[in-house]
Structures are given as structure tokens and as C-alpha cells.
Simulated assay, not measured.
Amino acid sequence: MLDALTIAVAVTALALAAWCGHAAYRDQPTKDWHFIGIAVVSVLALAQLVVGIVQLARGEEPSESVAIFLAYLIGAALAVPAAGFLSLGERTRWGSATVAAGAVVLAVLEVRLHDIWGG
């Protein structure tokens, strides 16, 4: 895996978590600006999914199971968009808290992906 991309995804996810966590602390729902942040993090996670699949197609293999690696890649790509979708139904501070939690989950998944690949 590309370490720079993994770090970029994790850092942007933590920044989104802090931003949405601050909004939840201030009793604010997710707003349009938050959804732009969700989109940026999601695009980075999708880029990582593509890079991971390309590396597997070239014959490179993770240090653990390929199935586990793919499951983590797909989960990482879907964590923040799913949280953003759920926040649309909850237009209170808890919508922002949901996105913050999803972003923290993505950051943890990035650490695990790095370990699975052989980091």
C-alpha cells in the first residue's frame, strides 16, 4: 500500500472527526460544509480502494489474508459515507456525532490496513 495515501486518509478522517465533534459539542447538526469534508475523505478512501485492488491485481500480496485485506478496504471506503448518510436522517447534534464516530472508525481502519499489508 502507499503509506502516504494511508496517512492522508487517516489524518483527514481525524480532522473531520474533530470538526464534526466540535459541531456536536456546540449542539449543531451536520451542515453543507461538513458534507464537503465527508466527500473529500470519501474520495481519498475510494482512491485507496482502487490502489489496493490494483496492487493485488499486479500480484502483490498482504502479509495476512487477501480476503481480510479486501474486507478492510471496502469497510474503510464505506465508513464515512454511511455515517454521512445516517446523519441526514438525524438533523440534531447526534448527526454530527455520528459523522465524527464514523471518521474515527475510518482512522482506526487505516491503522489496521497498514498492519495487514505488512507495515
Rank of each mutant, 00 (worst) to 15 (best):
F69S: 00
L106D: 08
I116K: 05
E90A: 09
G119L: 06
T30I: 04
S65G: 14
R26C: 10
A67K: 09
E64I: 04
A24D: 05
P62W: 02
L46D: 10
L109Q: 14
G84W: 07
W117N: 05
C20F: 07
I116W: 06
S42L: 00
G95D: 12
E90G: 01
A24M: 07
G118L: 03
A100Y: 02
A39W: 03
A83F: 14
L49R: 08
G52F: 03
P29W: 07
A97Q: 13
I116D: 01
T92E: 11
A107Y: 01
I36G: 05
G59K: 03
I38H: 01
T98L: 14
I68F: 02
A47S: 13
A79H: 01
A100L: 09
A23M: 10
D115N: 10
V9Y: 07
G95I: 07
G21W: 07
V104M: 12
S96D: 04
A23R: 08
W94K: 06
A4N: 14
V80F: 05
A107W: 05
L56T: 03
D27M: 08
I74G: 01
P62R: 04
S65E: 12
W33N: 13
L109R: 00
A103Q: 04
L113T: 00
W94Y: 14
V80A: 04
Q28H: 09
M1S: 09
S96H: 06
A77Q: 06
T12H: 07
R112T: 11
I116S: 01
G59Y: 03
I36W: 08
A39F: 01
G119N: 08
E64W: 13
A79K: 04
S63T: 07
V108R: 15
V54N: 09
P29V: 08
V40D: 11
H22W: 09
L86S: 15
D27E: 14
D115W: 10
A77S: 14
W117L: 03
A47D: 15
A79N: 02
E64N: 09
L78W: 06
D32M: 03
L5D: 07
L106W: 02
E61S: 10
A97W: 07
Y25W: 12
E90M: 08
L44H: 12
S63E: 05
G119P: 00
V108N: 07
F85A: 13
G95T: 08
